[in-house]
Simulated scan of single mutants.
Amino acid sequence: MPNPAPLFTKGIEKPPKYHKNRWKLIKQNWELYLFLLPTLVYFLIFHYWPMYGVQIAFRNFSPALGITGSEWVGLEHFIRFFESYNFWTLMYNTLSLSVLQLVITFPLPIIVALMLNQLIFKRYKRFVQTVIYAPHFISVVVLVGMAYVFFSNNGLINNFIMIFGMDSINFLADANWFKPLYVGSSVWQETGWAAIIYLAALAAVNPELHEAAIVDGASKFQRVIHIDIPAILPIMIILLVLSVGNIMNIGFEKAYLLQTPLNQSSSEIIPTYVYKVGLQQAQYSFAAAVGLFNAIINLILLWYVNRIAKRISGQGLW
């Protein structure tokens, strides 16, 4: 007579052999995995392998000695950055500019997409889309050049102001005007392009939902609130998580090009500081430490916001 099964195994089915099924599926679809191989190799070479060089943030790097031959100093560069006189200024400028841009530029594409989705005249809709998409293709250098043309002492804006007898405003030299110029140019350049994702999601909404809502007497505003917004809510959450996770990586190029000695108290942010210290002053280890600190803050924010989003709405990146 066979031995009875142990008590702790009664009623418990053996788990399926997932690893065998997985390898079987891979063998069956090997062409698809081969198609993904170049992308995998790209990320391994250009994104993961360079992480080896992060250790220079913990060394006193010397090009003559190389990364592994340079002296190990631990957290010395991080402590130096935390104790520097401009640490809090850099943190405030970076966070305030990033949060201001996020608060203003994130909801605007949603509003624009919802408004465009309600337009009836197709030609007018295409015209508006073309006009608001076009600035996205302007390079940052050209955009800053246009800002100098419009907002310099003899620019178009000051000439218009002086027509009414008011004094000209030195927009580019006033630290108080740096953030409005930065955020305003981002709104003009990126709002239309960012709205494409939401328009694509709105195009997938079943028209029968709107027809049923119209029969029930729902207004356009009610249909937007109860049909359109829930349809794009998952995309909104994902893009919000990505935006918050990238909050410390505010655009370097535009901030550096708009920066002048007179507005530096407001325009000096961590990316511009890393560029000046790392490349102009050749303090490679210190600049790497500052950049690594910046990346760690982004990673923490990304994880935390994704966790909150999943807890509230059930949607997240992972």
Rank of each mutant, 00 (worst) to 15 (best):
I120R: 13
M115W: 10
Y124I: 06
V131I: 01
P135R: 04
V141S: 15
K122V: 07
L90Q: 15
Q101F: 01
L97T: 11
V128I: 02
L100M: 06
I120Y: 12
L97V: 10
I132V: 00
F127Y: 11
V103A: 03
L102M: 07
F127D: 11
P135G: 07
I120M: 12
Y124H: 08
L114R: 08
L95E: 15
Q118D: 13
N117D: 10
L100F: 04
P109F: 00
Y133M: 09
R126I: 09
F106D: 10
I111H: 02
T130I: 02
H136R: 07
R126T: 12
V141M: 14
S98G: 11
I111K: 02
Q129F: 00
A113M: 12
V103F: 01
H136K: 08
I110V: 00
M115C: 13
L108A: 07
V131E: 04
F121E: 14
A113W: 07
L108Y: 03
Y124A: 11
M115R: 09
F121C: 11
V128M: 04
I138A: 07
I110W: 01
P107G: 04
R123Q: 14
V140Y: 06
F127T: 11
L108V: 03
A113T: 09
A134E: 01
A113D: 13
V140W: 06
P107W: 01
L119N: 06
P135V: 03
R123C: 05
L95P: 15
F121K: 13
S96K: 07
V141T: 14
R123H: 13
T89L: 15
P135K: 04
N93I: 10
